[in-house]
């Protein structure tokens, strides 16, 4: 797709609303137009993953109107960056429930590890607590601050896989934070690749999440790709699949109305998940990104928000 076409799309989407920077190009490293892969030679190309031609269904135009958007307007080059009110980033008591990602049932005796700097790669967590038999945990948490967590259970029981989530942001409250944490069962972790016809490698991990539009609704017709955070290379083992009616479907080529996606066999390391939609001229527009770190044989829940490159979309109440 030509940059002119891309520019036209961006102009139609945002530029005329706020007169912002209309010069932006999509993507980083020139990959947003579905051009040649930037993963080096011999590896998969971006066309292997980003090839949707059907139009998307969702709102990717109104992100400029988001409260607290610092940039003049998101246009693909200038990503929206939320700045929370530091006065609202306060430690609070937490009443949490650890629930199974698939069934919503409480997960008994699970360990919740919290990293208040939103980085589980630094080593020991800032706070660690074991839930009771009903999946209930009490802890300390922060409002209006992205926090990373991990939920795990006794490895000997093989009941769950280590489940990470970044960017858990709780709205401001002057009382107790009440929230939920996800845990993916070993059953779910095994059955998803089974239905998709994929064999997960034991030394690799899985990223799953929802693609959201500017209005915070799941976006249909989007595709994702996972790239090395430094080189932009696409891992050779990567398999990306999408869901239909909240179930994995091997024939679904892009996000359906539920916005759910899963990336399987992602090697350990730092990655960036990119979200694309088709443009009318036959190219593709990069509309969102989110950083990810994968640990072996684990699952990372990472949602992607249109207009954001850091996956940190704060509740309105947190913003300046």
């Amino acid at each position: 797709m030509s940059t002119i076409t891309m520019l036209a799309l961006l102009l139609a989407g945002c530029g005329d609303k706020d007169g912002g920077d209309d010069t932006g190009l999509t993507g980083d490293g020139g990959t947003g137009d579905g051009g040649t892969g930037d993963g080096g030679t011999g590896g998969p190309s971006i066309e292997d993953f980003i090839n949707v031609t059907d139009p998307y269904a969702g709102d990717i135009d109104s992100c400029c109107d988001l409260v607290g958007a610092e940039s003049d307007c998101w246009n693909g080059a200038n990503w929206i960056s939320h700045t929370p009110d530091p006065n609202l980033q306060v430690a609070s008591a937490l009443n949490g429930d650890i629930l199974d990602f698939e069934t919503g049932d409480p997960v008994a005796d699970a360990t919740l590890d919290l990293w208040f700097e939103n980085d589980p790669t630094v080593g020991a967590p800032d706070y660690s607590v074991v839930g009771d038999g009903d999946g209930y945990v009490t802890s300390t948490f922060y409002t209006c601050k992205p926090v990373a967590y991990k939920v795990s259970t006794d490895p000997a029981l093989d009941a769950t896989v280590d489940t990470y989530e970044l960017n858990q942001i709780e709205p401001y409250t002057d009382g107790t934070i009440v929230t939920e944490f996800n845990s993916v069962s070993s059953t779910t972790y095994a059955i998803i690749p089974s239905l998709l016809g994929v064999s997960p490698d034991g030394d690799k991990g899985t990223i799953a999440g929802t693609a959201y539009d500017c209005g915070g609704q799941p976006i249909e017709g989007a595709q994702i790709v996972v790239k090395d955070a430094e080189t932009g290379a696409i891992p050779e083992s990567l398999v990306v699949k999408y869901f239909v009616d909240e179930f994995p479907n091997r024939n679904q080529p892009y996000t359906s109305a539920d916005g759910l996606w899963v990336a399987i066999n992602v090697p350990e390391g730092n990655w960036v998940v990119e979200l694309y939609v088709a443009d009318p001229a036959g190219g593709h527009t990069l509309i969102g990104k989110s950083p990810a770190y994968i640990f072996p044989e684990s699952i990372l829940i990472s949602n992607i928000y249109t207009g954001f490159e850091d996956g940190k979309r704060y509740p309105d109440i947190c913003l300046l």
Partner: peptide
């Protein structure tokens, strides 16, 4: 089977049985 739905036919009802073709 969990997740074993025929997405192409989801929401389409069988004329005879009234069941979802998914």
């Amino acid at each position: 089977l969990p997740g074993a739905l025929n997405a192409d036919e989801a929401g389409v009802l069988d004329a005879d049985s009234g069941l979802d073709k998914a």
